[in-house]
Simulated assay, not measured.
Amino acid sequence: MRTYDEGRGRPIVLVHPGLSDGRRCGKVAAILASRYRVLRLDRLQYRPDRGAPVRVELEAEEVLRLARSAGEPVVLYGHSSGGVVALEALAASPASFAGAVIFEPPAVIGPPLSGEGGEVLRRARAAVASGSPGKGLAIFMRDTVELPDPQARLAGAITALIPRYRRLIPRQLDDLEALDRLGVRLDAYATIKLPTVLLGGEHSPAHLAERLDALQRVLPHAERVVLPGADHGADLKRPAEVARVIRELAEKVFAG
Rank of each mutant, 00 (worst) to 15 (best):
G131Y: 13
T159C: 12
R244G: 01
V85I: 15
I109P: 07
V145Q: 07
A157G: 03
L186N: 12
G118H: 14
R65Q: 07
A33M: 01
G201I: 02
L215P: 05
A160S: 13
P133I: 11
I169W: 06
I139V: 14
D175R: 05
S132Y: 14
G22V: 06
V15I: 14
T191K: 15
L161P: 03
A89T: 10
H232K: 01
V120I: 09
R167Q: 13
R2T: 09
G51R: 13
G26A: 12
R40S: 14
Y77Q: 05
V85R: 15
G183F: 10
G115I: 03
G131R: 15
R166C: 00
Q172T: 15
T159Y: 06
A178H: 11
R153V: 04
R47C: 02
D187N: 15
P148Q: 11
G26Q: 10
V184L: 14
R217N: 02
E223G: 01
Y189R: 09
D187Y: 07
D149P: 15
R35L: 03
A160H: 10
H207F: 12
V38R: 11
Y77L: 05
T159E: 06
T3K: 09
L182D: 10
S130V: 01
V85G: 04
P11I: 04
G9M: 05
Y165I: 00
G51Q: 09
L168I: 02
R167P: 03
K135S: 11
R8C: 06
V15H: 10
D49H: 08
G233T: 04
F254H: 09
S114V: 02
E210V: 13
P163Y: 01
P150R: 09
A230P: 00
A138K: 09
R8E: 14
G78D: 12
S93F: 03
I162P: 08
V225W: 00
V226Q: 02
E202Y: 00
D42C: 09
Y77F: 13
V108M: 09
F103G: 06
I158T: 15
L137F: 12
